[in-house]
Nucleic acid binder design. Sequence first.
DNA 1: GGACTATACAAGTATAGACATGTTGATATC
DNA 2: GATATCAACATGTCTATACTTGTATAGTCC
Lengths: 245, 245
Amino acid sequence: MSALEIDDGPLPLYERIKRGILAKIESGAWGRDQRIPSENELVRALGVSRMTVNRAFSELADDGVLVRIHGVGTFVGGGAPLAPLMEIRNIAEEIAERGHGHSATLLCREVALAPVEIAGQFGMNSGRRLFHTIIVHAEDGLPVQLEDRYVDPAAAPAYLDQDFSLVTPNQYLMGVAPLSGGEHLVEAVLAQDWECRHLRIEPAEPCLLVRRRTWSEGRLVSAARLLYPGSRYRLGGRFENATGR
Amino acid sequence: MSALEIDDGPLPLYERIKRGILAKIESGAWGRDQRIPSENELVRALGVSRMTVNRAFSELADDGVLVRIHGVGTFVGGGAPLAPLMEIRNIAEEIAERGHGHSATLLCREVALAPVEIAGQFGMNSGRRLFHTIIVHAEDGLPVQLEDRYVDPAAAPAYLDQDFSLVTPNQYLMGVAPLSGGEHLVEAVLAQDWECRHLRIEPAEPCLLVRRRTWSEGRLVSAARLLYPGSRYRLGGRFENATGR
DNA sequence: GGACTATACAAGTATAGACATGTTGATATC
DNA sequence: GATATCAACATGTCTATACTTGTATAGTCC
């Protein structure tokens, strides 16, 4: 755990501590759900009073930036409010199941310097390089998903050499790095202009944005933003109660 | 015996152990009446204190999930309704977990003639009457969900008599008609004007619309439209690989 | 009056150790 | 074969200690 650094300036001390914490989170040094130093640790490290640290922590907790658990510790917030559980499905298979034709258009294929927030998720510093692809998936010619994906080269070295009109990134990664876990975050957003053009939708049309991260053997393999036009797509999930009643 | 895995997160250790155990049971890895690892085995496997494992076991035993026999071991209990509790979540509990206050405003409570598309879902002709409620759920005073729900009177005759500021429809229905299955559909939409007013959002703001249907003993109990402001809410789901791939 | 410190106490969580009590199975003994 | 004994292991319960957040109060400084 790297120590918290606070710069000096005209701001109140508790305010500078708050900014120092936010900087740690924004840089990815302190990831989501990660435990951060306790009040007393910061008291010793910064040489300030506990009440001052407490104020910084409390205000960030009120804002939802941090989560504090009595007797346990303080954690970076933003954790998913776990609601529905969904499967990792392959869009090409979904479309095929509906008896339609799937096609994919490759908009971007590159080795990219990881943006800060992406690099943090992969647990690396922002200097590392990741594979990056942007693909538009269409159903009978009509765009239904814009897929913006970063992949860890260590997990799938030959990723960029695939012919994504034949094999979806999802399919390929499942074969190369067997899925051991995943996470979905679903939001409703308005798409950006260039996204609207490629999805052939109006700028005011709401879209589903699914952020999907998949792990293989404890290592994050891929982080993808999947953008669906709201008028053309729905997500669904079912479950049956297996254990009883 | 596969080892118990506990994830990290902003929860007390004993709570995370409880969830790990529940996950094992839900996934079927630990079947009914099966013996699970002893306290000392988990102490060694997880590197925690025995009292912590003991607390997790004891609380699950109090809930009927586990059965403990002095001198013998700890066993999975019979017929605990586990899975649904994890997946169909109660908005009041979610908000409470974030340390915020939940409040509900009842906009509508009536016996209604079922609209055609709703009646069809309930497997009845459109002449039948259903209970109908519209409730706005708020987190610290800020609206986060508009719940528009139809309920089968045969499954929950006293539904309309509840005080929904104390008990959410979800909570009440879970008690009256034990959940045996469910379905989610998620869309991105623009809210209607009256919905925007009650959620206090701009008409152009995209919203998540979750259509949730729940069954009890093979019969559809409730069909709900849950509308979330896109700027204030995200849905999330995680899974660990129990079944493979 | 706000910022900051210092101090104190409460309550929740986790560890470590200890001892009691119940169950089981192997072993020696009758 | 039946039985008594013992060791190993299980849960049940209790201490003590330490560390965490939650909260309140009083005082100092600018």
